[in-house]
Amino acid sequence: MSIWEYANPVKFMRTSGAILPFAVAGAVVCTVGGVVWGFLTPDDFRQGSTVKIVFLHVPAAMMAINIWVMMLVASLIWLIRRHHVSALAAKAAAPIGAVMTLIALATGAIWGQPMWGTWWEWDPRLTSFLILLLFYLGYIALWASVEDVDSAADLTGVLCLVGSVFALLSRYAVLFWNQGLHQGASLSVQSGERMSAIYRYPLYLSMLGFLLLFVALVLIRTRTEIRRRRLAALQAREMRA
């Protein structure tokens, strides 16, 4: 028994079908719970009620980056071991990542307006996320424009690899280019003095919720891709017959 067994589409369909209800239930409970709990937290003395946006902004930003990493790993598995499910999972994850990036950017812009007095600032973090969005869009566009599925998987895999290097490079280039307004708000800084428990626990729940939401969505979307491929294969067979 090894994890490579899940590379078999039939096995993947069976297992993912069994996991899916739990993932969906967990995603709904945690996301709705975390976001609603976050919405009900008391106002911050400095930021007022805008602090509630953190329960959407931070989980979305976290997932935006992690989904790209997951795509990179899945692409590598496809390029090295030629498991079709892996390539399809990377394809399925890309639109989710793009939406997460969009949420992080949109909530950030709306939050920045009253806090910094501007919708947009060419701050390293904001700029990096904009660049990340461009990489997601390019990746999705490439998948959409190559007809042969295996070629598309190969090309997007190579693009994901090169893109990862350049996304990271851009991150540091942008840091060099402009120092910003955005607080270095990683959780390690926040725990303790920066963020009190009334904000921290709903944030954890919300982050778990977004993670489960991603798992559920990527399972659904991968299943869609597998079905589409099987359909195409059956149609091709029928044509020949």
Binding site: T50, K52, I53, I103, A106, T107, I110, Q113
Partner: peptide
């Protein structure tokens, strides 16, 4: 308005 817009869009 800010908070509701952020939640709404998300």
């Amino acid at each position: 308005g800010t908070v509701l817009a952020a939640y709404g869009i998300s």
